[in-house]
Design a binder for these strands. Structure first.
Lengths: 254, 254
DNA sequence: AAACATCGTGCATAAACGTGCAAAACAAAA
DNA sequence: TTTTGTTTTGCACGTTTATGCACGATGTTT
């Protein structure tokens, strides 16, 4: 996570600070000063300007993400904002150079949008929506899983996609979460969708379940993966988390 | 790293700066001056011009990539009305129940949008954009060709997509047209893109070339298909069509 | 309350900037 | 080849921007 650029343009630095802010939700002045090799005075000046522009909220020691970051376009803008918050938290688990499986789903589309650019990431997905979110952005290698497109799921499924996924080895998998419970694990509705998710998970080192609070109360028909296969759970503070206490899952709250 | 060319034409230099900008997202004036062996003044002049042309954003110390500079999306936005008109004409060649290849490209995205619903159409495409245009609309069976996504083309290319396309038999193919001339036929820029187009065309009974007027004057590097492989040409009334008179192609004007 | 960290402001310095101008390089016409 | 006209370049100049430091003020912790 070293940003040892000998020459970082002032404006570029401000931009990077914003990116970091969006990703982590907060920044510490002293840390930034060390990373960019400038005095804290300069960082403070940057943060002051960003705060004046409404990009962040200045606090003692650093800055926080400004709350008023809601596009508010759709009717379910509420859901989108929640999913964006989850996505921002989820992408903090990604490191430069990693290979990611990103399954179809509206939350996962937000994850794709929130992924940082120019980090040499490889993304394998079955969702044209996810592919579109990454198209034209620098630093992304995108692999599309072929096959028949399922309209309701919003991604490809079937033998071909499964076979293609099996031939890959990835670092992290972001499966779409239909339902998740602490006892059994991850559930899915559709049979073929289930098979593809299992292939993706099996081909990945880690599995990050990103789910809104209600997904932890929901039920579905096919058991996709046991609870011990879940390495991280990214969810909301309002979620019922007591049953997850003994599972050893790393829980990250948006 | 170092570009010690003794002879770098001014125009060429600007081009290289843009390339670097696209690759790194930023350029430093002092570094460029050293690499091109010119004074910083000249570099500053270059950057000023590029910024005026909207290719980059000038900042203290150098320049940053313009935030909204997405090569593909930009092409999408251009001539939308003209492409919609072409698309409306092109879909009149489609009959219910047919199987269609739709290649990547902004014009072809418009074709997908213009296709009639509830006609039991099967669409095979390498473009997530095309898939998205059909997603959720009734009466479409969509097959996505897997593989590595090419950012500039806006679709998948490579051995996998080619193999998948070869295993299909379709009625009509809508290849993306980089250039078309009456003597030789259909041309393409990229080598791998060319191979996929050939596979699509070879797997289809008919081939419909949909091209704006300027595509008939353009040139490209790879010959994809001979002129006799083109069954229909959909283009604009303003196009130079005299040379196509003896080819036996069915010409449809938007 | 004392000790300490962080903050904003003012100031000096250095780097980068735009502008105007004249020399140099280049291309086209004689 | 020489001449003419255009483009490109480097330099000088005054201006703007960014930076680090000093210093007093304001928070935070113990």
């Amino acid at each position: 996570m070293n940003r040892v650029a000998d020459t970082t343009l002032p404006r570029e630095r401000a931009q990077l600070i914003v990116e970091r802010l969006q990703r982590d939700g907060r920044v510490v002045a002293a840390e930034l000063a060390a990373e960019f090799r400038v005095s804290e005075d300069s960082i403070r000046r940057d943060l002051r300007e960003l705060a004046a522009a409404g990009q962040c909220k200045r606090v003692y020691g650093g800055a926080l993400l400004a709350a008023n970051f809601a596009p508010l376009r759709q009717r379910d803008a509420q859901h989108i904002a929640r999913k964006q918050a989850l996505a921002r938290a989820a992408v903090s688990l990604v490191s430069p150079g990693q290979i990611l499986f990103i399954d179809a789903g509206s939350t996962n589309t937000q994850i794709a949008l929130a992924l940082p650019e120019r980090q040499d990431l490889t993304v394998i997905t079955n969702a044209p929506d996810v592919a579109n979110a990454l198209l034209g952005r620098p630093g992304f290698d995108v692999l599309l899983l072929g096959g028949r497109l399922h309209h309701h799921i919003g991604g490809t499924i079937g033998a071909q996609a499964v076979a293609q996924a099996r031939g890959i080895r990835a670092d992290v998998c972001f499966p779409g979460v239909c339902a998740l419970d602490a006892r059994n694990g991850l559930w899915t509705f559709d049979d073929e969708e289930n098979l593809l998710k299992q292939a993706m998970i099996g081909a990945s080192g880690e599995m990050v379940a990103v789910a809104t609070a209600e997904k932890l109360q929901a039920a579905a028909t096919h058991l996709t993966a046991g609870i011990d296969a879940v390495t991280h759970l990214v969810t909301e503070a309002s979620a019922a988390l007591d049953r997850f206490s003994g599972t050893g899952i790393n829980i990250l709250l948006a």
